[in-house]
């Protein structure tokens, strides 16, 4: 088939659009990486291609401040959140998906409702609870309070996934005299890795990124998480922000998340559409 002039024009138009989309999505982060390798006065000259490769910002961000500690805090909180929400989500989802009992539909709707909660609406009540339990300035306050974002979503996605698993599996397990806990850990868990990876990753990302609670409940520098540490990075004067350091810190905390998302992109897309479209 011969292509006419009109077809070529269409093709050129289409690929122009494709290139524009790529530039729009990637360029800001590319520019942040570029800036993170510049220091001194070079930082304040705009250029669009890598001219300098100065690791100074990466060195100073780890030596001058508690940034290494902040990364460690964020890692602890995020893994704690993932572990707790998967444990509670898995057992809760088993009950909601596999056992018929009165009030099940109502419970599911309530859980979905909680997932739409604006977190700021519970700020003062949560603050009081955290102060009352003595968790203030401790990372536990964050592991605990982040359950409001991660738990409803985890339960919801795992329930929809578990509901579709064949009944025969469970019947066989019951015949063999397995307890419900054994059924979950030995029969369902091996089949549920895809769903567990997806919900775990999304919980991890939410915990890694959360800002409002981390800013409010933790007031000592040693216990800060990464987003708050970056937000509070200041210079000698309030008007002079250390942009080189901020960009270096941003790149350091973003690369692992971007890598995770790109490696697991198919699973994440599946999880998001499960949570949103089926919900």
């Amino acid at each position: 088939m011969k292509r006419g002039k009109k077809d070529y024009a269409k093709l050129v138009g289409f690929y122009t659009l494709v290139v524009a989309i790529i530039l729009y999505a990637v360029f800001p982060f590319y520019y942040a990486i570029l800036s993170s390798f510049k220091s001194g006065s070079a930082l304040f000259e705009v250029n669009y291609f890598p001219f300098s490769l100065d690791f100074g910002n990466y060195g100073s961000v780890f030596t001058g401040q508690n940034f290494g500690q902040s990364i460690w805090n964020s890692v602890l909180v995020s893994f704690g959140v993932v572990a707790l929400s998967l444990l509670l989500g898995l057992t809760g989802a088993f009950a909601l998906a596999r056992v018929r009992f009165r009030g099940r539909g109502l419970l599911l709707m309530t859980i979905l409702g909680v997932s739409m909660f604006p977190a700021v609406a519970v700020l003062s009540g949560m603050f009081e609870l955290i102060r009352f339990t003595g968790m203030q300035d401790s990372l536990w306050s964050l592991v605990f309070s982040y359950m409001i974002f991660t738990l409803p979503f985890t339960v919801w996605v795992l329930t929809t996934f578990m509901r579709d698993l064949p009944l025969e599996l469970e019947e066989a397990a019951i015949m063999d005299g397995a307890t419900p806990w054994q059924t979950i850990t030995q029969v369902f868990m091996p089949l549920m890795w895809p769903a567990l990876v997806t919900t775990g990753l999304l919980a991890f990302i939410q915990a890694w990124n959360e800002f409002l609670f981390a800013l409010t409940f933790i007031l000592v520098d040693e216990q800060r998480t990464v987003p708050v540490a970056i937000a509070l990075m200041g210079g000698n004067t309030p008007r002079e922000l250390p942009w080189g350091n901020i960009m270096a810190a941003s790149v350091v905390v973003t690369l692992p998340v971007v890598a995770l998302v790109l490696i697991f992109q198919r699973r994440i897309v599946a999880g998001l559409t499960d949570g949103a479209v089926k919900g």
Binding site: W208, I230, M247, S250, V253, T254
Partner: peptide, 22 residues
């Protein structure tokens, strides 16, 4: 392209706010 499009979503909100502030 699909991979590239995902990048803004993967960047933490605070980081993207700081990046754009710059």
């Amino acid at each position: 392209v699909r991979t590239a499009v995902l990048i803004p979503w993967a960047i933490p909100t605070i980081v993207s706010a700081k990046m754009w502030q710059w």
